[in-house]
Protein backbone atom coordinates (compact mmCIF):
# COMPACT_ATOMS: atom_id res chain seq x y z
CA UNK A 1 0.00 0.00 0.00
CA UNK A 2 1.20 3.50 -0.75
CA UNK A 3 0.94 5.31 2.54
CA UNK A 4 2.53 8.44 1.08
CA UNK A 5 -0.80 9.48 -0.43
CA UNK A 6 -2.31 12.22 1.73
CA UNK A 7 -5.69 10.53 2.24
CA UNK A 8 -4.32 7.06 2.91
CA UNK A 9 -1.56 8.48 5.10
CA UNK A 10 -4.06 10.52 7.12
CA UNK A 11 -6.35 7.52 7.44
CA UNK A 12 -3.46 5.47 8.83
CA UNK A 13 -2.33 8.24 11.19
CA UNK A 14 -5.91 8.59 12.44
CA UNK A 15 -6.11 4.82 13.05
CA UNK A 16 -2.77 4.94 14.88
CA UNK A 17 -3.94 7.69 17.27
CA UNK A 18 -7.36 6.04 17.63
CA UNK A 19 -5.65 2.82 18.75
CA UNK A 20 -3.52 4.68 21.32
CA UNK A 21 -6.51 6.61 22.70
CA UNK A 22 -8.64 3.48 23.03
CA UNK A 23 -5.83 1.47 24.61
CA UNK A 24 -4.79 4.11 27.16
CA UNK A 25 -8.35 4.13 28.51
CA UNK A 26 -8.98 0.39 28.50
CA UNK A 27 -6.45 -1.07 30.92
CA UNK A 28 -9.10 -3.11 32.75
CA UNK A 29 -10.22 -4.76 29.51
CA UNK A 30 -6.60 -5.58 28.72
CA UNK A 31 -6.14 -7.28 32.10
CA UNK A 32 -9.17 -9.49 31.36
CA UNK A 33 -7.85 -10.14 27.87
CA UNK A 34 -4.55 -11.43 29.25
CA UNK A 35 -6.38 -13.61 31.80
CA UNK A 36 -8.28 -15.28 28.95
CA UNK A 37 -5.08 -15.84 26.98
CA UNK A 38 -3.48 -17.47 30.03
CA UNK A 39 -6.54 -19.71 30.51
CA UNK A 40 -6.05 -20.84 26.94
CA UNK A 41 -2.38 -21.61 27.60
CA UNK A 42 -3.33 -23.56 30.72
CA UNK A 43 -5.81 -25.53 28.61
CA UNK A 44 -8.88 -24.20 30.44
CA UNK A 45 -12.06 -23.52 28.47
CA UNK A 46 -11.89 -19.99 27.09
CA UNK A 47 -14.36 -17.57 28.66
CA UNK A 48 -16.09 -14.98 26.56
CA UNK A 49 -14.70 -11.44 26.41
CA UNK A 50 -16.61 -9.01 28.58
CA UNK A 51 -18.20 -6.26 26.53
CA UNK A 52 -16.38 -2.94 26.62
CA UNK A 53 -18.42 0.23 26.63
CA UNK A 54 -17.33 0.95 23.10
CA UNK A 55 -18.38 -2.35 21.63
CA UNK A 56 -21.16 -3.56 23.89
CA UNK A 57 -23.88 -2.84 21.32
CA UNK A 58 -22.15 -5.01 18.75
CA UNK A 59 -21.37 -7.74 21.25
CA UNK A 60 -25.00 -7.99 22.37
CA UNK A 61 -26.05 -8.10 18.75
CA UNK A 62 -23.49 -10.85 18.15
CA UNK A 63 -24.90 -12.86 21.04
CA UNK A 64 -28.41 -12.48 19.65
CA UNK A 65 -27.14 -13.67 16.30
CA UNK A 66 -25.30 -16.57 17.93
CA UNK A 67 -28.51 -17.64 19.71
CA UNK A 68 -30.43 -17.43 16.48
CA UNK A 69 -27.76 -19.36 14.58
CA UNK A 70 -27.81 -22.04 17.27
CA UNK A 71 -31.57 -22.33 16.88
CA UNK A 72 -31.21 -22.65 13.12
CA UNK A 73 -28.41 -25.18 13.50
CA UNK A 74 -30.45 -27.33 15.90
CA UNK A 75 -33.42 -27.12 13.56
CA UNK A 76 -31.53 -28.39 10.54
CA UNK A 77 -28.57 -30.29 11.96
CA UNK A 78 -29.99 -33.68 11.08
CA UNK A 79 -31.18 -32.61 7.69
CA UNK A 80 -29.34 -33.42 4.49
CA UNK A 81 -31.95 -31.63 2.41
CA UNK A 82 -30.00 -29.00 0.40
CA UNK A 83 -33.04 -26.70 0.33
CA UNK A 84 -33.26 -26.73 4.14
CA UNK A 85 -29.52 -26.18 4.48
CA UNK A 86 -29.79 -23.28 2.04
CA UNK A 87 -32.69 -21.83 4.03
CA UNK A 88 -30.67 -22.10 7.24
CA UNK A 89 -27.77 -20.27 5.53
CA UNK A 90 -30.16 -17.52 4.37
CA UNK A 91 -31.57 -17.19 7.90
CA UNK A 92 -28.08 -16.91 9.35
CA UNK A 93 -27.07 -14.26 6.84
CA UNK A 94 -30.28 -12.36 7.48
CA UNK A 95 -29.51 -12.29 11.21
CA UNK A 96 -26.01 -10.95 10.51
CA UNK A 97 -27.42 -8.34 8.10
CA UNK A 98 -29.89 -7.27 10.79
CA UNK A 99 -27.09 -6.38 13.24
CA UNK A 100 -26.86 -2.64 13.87
CA UNK A 101 -23.48 -2.33 12.13
CA UNK A 102 -23.24 0.27 9.34
CA UNK A 103 -21.98 -1.36 6.16
CA UNK A 104 -21.18 -0.07 2.71
CA UNK A 105 -21.96 -2.03 -0.47
CA UNK A 106 -21.25 -1.17 -4.08
CA UNK A 107 -24.37 -1.24 -6.16
CA UNK A 108 -24.48 -2.02 -9.89
CA UNK A 109 -27.71 -1.78 -11.80
CA UNK A 110 -28.79 -2.46 -15.38
CA UNK A 111 -32.24 -1.43 -16.55
CA UNK A 112 -34.21 -0.88 -19.72
CA UNK A 113 -36.29 2.19 -20.48
CA UNK A 114 -38.23 0.55 -23.31
CA UNK A 115 -35.92 1.31 -26.18
CA UNK A 116 -32.46 1.30 -24.62
CA UNK A 117 -30.33 -0.30 -21.93
CA UNK A 118 -28.83 1.81 -19.19
CA UNK A 119 -26.45 1.01 -16.36
CA UNK A 120 -25.02 2.79 -13.37
CA UNK A 121 -22.81 2.18 -10.34
CA UNK A 122 -23.52 3.61 -6.95
CA UNK A 123 -22.98 3.02 -3.24
CA UNK A 124 -25.51 1.94 -0.70
CA UNK A 125 -25.17 2.31 3.07
CA UNK A 126 -27.05 -0.16 5.21
CA UNK A 127 -27.55 -0.54 8.94
CA UNK A 128 -29.70 -3.30 10.37
CA UNK A 129 -33.09 -4.18 8.99
CA UNK A 130 -34.50 -0.69 8.56
CA UNK A 131 -31.81 1.82 7.69
CA UNK A 132 -30.44 2.39 4.25
CA UNK A 133 -29.34 5.32 2.09
CA UNK A 134 -28.37 5.22 -1.56
CA UNK A 135 -27.24 7.87 -3.99
CA UNK A 136 -28.54 7.55 -7.54
CA UNK A 137 -27.27 9.43 -10.56
CA UNK A 138 -29.92 11.99 -11.59
CA UNK A 139 -31.54 12.35 -14.97
CA UNK A 140 -29.50 15.48 -15.69
CA UNK A 141 -25.70 15.26 -16.02
CA UNK A 142 -23.74 15.92 -12.81
CA UNK A 143 -26.84 15.60 -10.66
CA UNK A 144 -27.84 12.93 -8.17
CA UNK A 145 -30.62 12.17 -5.77
CA UNK A 146 -30.74 10.26 -2.51
CA UNK A 147 -33.34 7.79 -1.35
CA UNK A 148 -33.34 6.18 2.04
CA UNK A 149 -35.14 4.91 5.02
CA UNK A 150 -34.74 4.93 8.79
CA UNK A 151 -36.71 3.35 11.62
CA UNK A 152 -39.34 6.14 11.48
CA UNK A 153 -39.82 7.11 7.84
CA UNK A 154 -38.67 6.77 4.26
CA UNK A 155 -37.61 9.68 2.09
CA UNK A 156 -36.43 10.94 -1.29
CA UNK A 157 -34.11 13.92 -1.69
CA UNK A 158 -34.13 14.91 -5.37
CA UNK A 159 -31.37 16.98 -6.95
CA UNK A 160 -33.67 20.00 -6.82
CA UNK A 161 -37.03 20.84 -5.31
CA UNK A 162 -39.04 19.51 -2.41
CA UNK A 163 -38.01 16.60 -0.23
CA UNK A 164 -40.53 13.75 -0.13
CA UNK A 165 -41.24 11.84 3.06
CA UNK A 166 -43.65 9.11 4.09
CA UNK A 167 -44.05 5.75 5.76
CA UNK A 168 -42.08 2.73 4.57
CA UNK A 169 -44.75 1.90 2.01
CA UNK A 170 -44.31 5.35 0.48
CA UNK A 171 -40.72 4.61 -0.66
CA UNK A 172 -41.65 1.12 -1.83
CA UNK A 173 -44.28 2.58 -4.16
CA UNK A 174 -42.00 5.43 -5.22
CA UNK A 175 -39.15 3.06 -6.06
CA UNK A 176 -41.42 0.74 -8.03
CA UNK A 177 -42.74 3.67 -10.06
CA UNK A 178 -39.31 5.26 -10.64
CA UNK A 179 -38.14 4.68 -14.22
CA UNK A 180 -34.50 4.04 -13.38
CA UNK A 181 -35.09 1.97 -10.26
CA UNK A 182 -38.42 0.19 -10.79
CA UNK A 183 -38.11 -2.17 -7.82
CA UNK A 184 -38.22 -1.98 -4.05
CA UNK A 185 -35.58 -4.73 -3.71
CA UNK A 186 -32.60 -2.58 -2.78
CA UNK A 187 -31.72 -3.53 0.77
CA UNK A 188 -29.74 -6.73 1.43
CA UNK A 189 -32.31 -7.77 4.04
CA UNK A 190 -35.16 -7.30 1.52
CA UNK A 191 -33.47 -9.63 -0.94
CA UNK A 192 -32.58 -12.20 1.72
CA UNK A 193 -36.14 -12.09 3.11
CA UNK A 194 -37.49 -12.72 -0.38
CA UNK A 195 -35.28 -15.80 -0.73
CA UNK A 196 -36.85 -17.50 2.26
CA UNK A 197 -40.38 -16.91 0.99
CA UNK A 198 -42.34 -19.84 -0.46
CA UNK A 199 -42.07 -18.39 -3.95
CA UNK A 200 -38.43 -19.50 -4.34
CA UNK A 201 -36.70 -22.87 -4.51
CA UNK A 202 -33.23 -22.87 -2.98
CA UNK A 203 -29.92 -24.61 -3.65
CA UNK A 204 -26.60 -24.28 -1.83
CA UNK A 205 -22.97 -25.06 -2.63
CA UNK A 206 -19.54 -24.36 -1.16
CA UNK A 207 -17.42 -22.02 -3.25
CA UNK A 208 -14.47 -19.64 -3.12
CA UNK A 209 -15.37 -16.12 -4.17
CA UNK A 210 -12.62 -14.23 -5.99
CA UNK A 211 -13.01 -10.51 -5.43
CA UNK A 212 -11.75 -7.68 -7.62
CA UNK A 213 -9.01 -6.95 -5.06
CA UNK A 214 -7.68 -10.53 -5.53
CA UNK A 215 -9.04 -11.52 -2.15
CA UNK A 216 -10.47 -15.03 -2.08
CA UNK A 217 -13.18 -15.74 0.45
CA UNK A 218 -14.58 -19.13 1.43
CA UNK A 219 -18.31 -18.84 0.93
CA UNK A 220 -21.58 -20.68 0.78
CA UNK A 221 -23.36 -19.74 -2.42
CA UNK A 222 -27.14 -19.84 -2.19
CA UNK A 223 -29.11 -19.83 -5.39
CA UNK A 224 -32.83 -18.98 -5.36
CA UNK A 225 -35.11 -19.37 -8.37
CA UNK A 226 -38.64 -18.02 -8.48
CA UNK A 227 -41.44 -20.59 -8.77
CA UNK A 228 -43.90 -17.90 -9.78
CA UNK A 229 -45.06 -17.32 -13.33
CA UNK A 230 -43.42 -14.60 -15.42
CA UNK A 231 -43.57 -11.02 -14.20
CA UNK A 232 -46.85 -9.26 -14.70
CA UNK A 233 -45.87 -5.72 -15.75
CA UNK A 234 -49.30 -4.42 -14.76
CA UNK A 235 -48.57 -5.22 -11.10
CA UNK A 236 -46.46 -3.05 -8.81
CA UNK A 237 -44.78 -6.07 -7.21
CA UNK A 238 -41.67 -6.97 -9.16
CA UNK A 239 -39.82 -9.82 -7.46
CA UNK A 240 -36.53 -10.97 -9.03
CA UNK A 241 -36.62 -14.19 -11.05
CA UNK A 242 -33.27 -15.32 -9.61
CA UNK A 243 -31.29 -14.30 -6.55
CA UNK A 244 -27.74 -15.49 -5.82
CA UNK A 245 -25.98 -14.76 -2.53
CA UNK A 246 -22.38 -15.47 -1.53
CA UNK A 247 -22.21 -15.72 2.27
CA UNK A 248 -18.84 -15.70 4.03
CA UNK A 249 -18.51 -19.05 5.83
CA UNK A 250 -16.81 -17.67 8.94
CA UNK A 251 -19.07 -14.71 9.62
CA UNK A 252 -22.36 -15.33 7.78
CA UNK A 253 -21.96 -11.93 6.12
CA UNK A 254 -23.50 -11.52 2.64
CA UNK A 255 -20.48 -10.59 0.51
CA UNK A 256 -22.20 -10.50 -2.86
CA UNK A 257 -25.86 -10.47 -3.84
CA UNK A 258 -27.04 -10.68 -7.46
CA UNK A 259 -30.69 -10.36 -8.45
CA UNK A 260 -31.99 -10.90 -11.99
CA UNK A 261 -35.34 -10.19 -13.58
CA UNK A 262 -36.57 -11.88 -16.76
CA UNK A 263 -38.06 -9.13 -18.88
CA UNK A 264 -40.27 -9.65 -21.88
CA UNK A 265 -39.17 -8.17 -25.19
CA UNK A 266 -39.19 -4.37 -24.80
CA UNK A 267 -40.54 -4.40 -21.23
CA UNK A 268 -39.04 -1.53 -19.27
CA UNK A 269 -37.54 -2.00 -15.82
CA UNK A 270 -34.60 -3.33 -13.92
CA UNK A 271 -32.97 -6.47 -15.22
CA UNK A 272 -29.87 -6.87 -13.06
CA UNK A 273 -28.75 -5.72 -9.64
CA UNK A 274 -25.48 -6.56 -7.91
CA UNK A 275 -24.43 -5.63 -4.39
CA UNK A 276 -20.81 -6.13 -3.32
CA UNK A 277 -19.76 -5.71 0.29
CA UNK A 278 -17.07 -3.04 0.66
CA UNK A 279 -16.53 -2.41 4.34
CA UNK A 280 -18.01 -1.94 7.77
CA UNK A 281 -18.32 1.76 8.51
CA UNK A 282 -18.36 1.81 12.29
CA UNK A 283 -17.66 5.54 12.45
CA UNK A 284 -20.78 6.40 10.50
CA UNK A 285 -23.59 7.89 12.54
CA UNK A 286 -27.27 7.18 12.00
CA UNK A 287 -27.63 10.73 10.63
CA UNK A 288 -26.74 9.27 7.25
CA UNK A 289 -30.18 7.68 7.20
CA UNK A 290 -31.96 11.02 7.70
CA UNK A 291 -33.13 13.01 4.66
CA UNK A 292 -31.76 16.23 6.25
CA UNK A 293 -28.19 14.96 5.92
CA UNK A 294 -28.43 15.01 2.13
CA UNK A 295 -29.23 18.64 1.33
CA UNK A 296 -28.05 22.06 2.41
CA UNK A 297 -30.21 25.05 3.28
CA UNK A 298 -33.98 25.17 3.19
CA UNK A 299 -36.10 22.78 1.12
CA UNK A 300 -39.87 22.38 1.35
CA UNK A 301 -40.91 18.93 2.58
CA UNK A 302 -43.91 17.11 1.14
CA UNK A 303 -45.24 14.57 3.60
CA UNK A 304 -47.03 11.60 2.07
CA UNK A 305 -47.90 9.83 5.28
CA UNK A 306 -51.64 9.80 4.63
CA UNK A 307 -51.42 8.36 1.14
CA UNK A 308 -48.80 5.82 2.12
CA UNK A 309 -50.55 4.38 5.15
Amino acid sequence: MNVDGQDEGDDLREAWIDSLLITMNNTQADTERLARAMEQIEGKPVTRAKPTLRSSRFRWASMAVAASVLFIAVLWMESNDPAKLALAAVERSLQVAAMPVPRKYELQVKYRTGTEWKAYDSEIYIQGRDNFAVRHPGLLPETSFWVGQNERESWVVPAFGPVLKGGKDFLKKWLEASEEIRTSSLHVTTLLSRMRSKGYSLKIEDTVLQRADNDSIECEKIYAESNSPAIDPTKHEDPPTQIEVWVEKDSGLAIRVIAKWDRGEGDPGREYLELNFVTEERNLTTDLFLAESHYDGYRPVINSWEESQ
Binding site: S19, L20, T23, R36, A37, I41, R282
Partner: peptide, 27 residues
Amino acid sequence: TGMLMAYIRAGIRDEHAADDVYQETVL
Protein backbone atom coordinates in the same frame (compact mmCIF):
# COMPACT_ATOMS: atom_id res chain seq x y z
CA THR B 1 -0.19 -5.91 26.65
CA GLY B 2 -1.06 -2.20 26.33
CA MET B 3 1.47 -1.57 23.60
CA LEU B 4 0.62 -4.85 21.85
CA MET B 5 -3.13 -4.11 21.85
CA ALA B 6 -2.55 -0.57 20.53
CA TYR B 7 -0.41 -2.03 17.74
CA ILE B 8 -3.05 -4.64 16.83
CA ARG B 9 -5.92 -2.13 17.00
CA ALA B 10 -4.04 0.25 14.68
CA GLY B 11 -3.57 -2.50 12.11
CA ILE B 12 -6.89 -4.31 12.36
CA ARG B 13 -9.39 -1.56 13.34
CA ASP B 14 -12.04 -4.04 14.48
CA GLU B 15 -12.39 -4.68 18.19
CA HIS B 16 -13.57 -8.31 17.81
CA ALA B 17 -10.84 -9.23 15.35
CA ALA B 18 -8.22 -7.35 17.41
CA ASP B 19 -9.13 -9.46 20.44
CA ASP B 20 -8.80 -12.65 18.36
CA VAL B 21 -5.41 -11.52 17.03
CA TYR B 22 -4.22 -10.76 20.57
CA GLN B 23 -5.25 -14.22 21.82
CA GLU B 24 -3.53 -15.92 18.87
CA THR B 25 -0.41 -13.81 19.31
CA VAL B 26 0.00 -14.61 23.01
CA LEU B 27 -0.60 -18.30 22.35
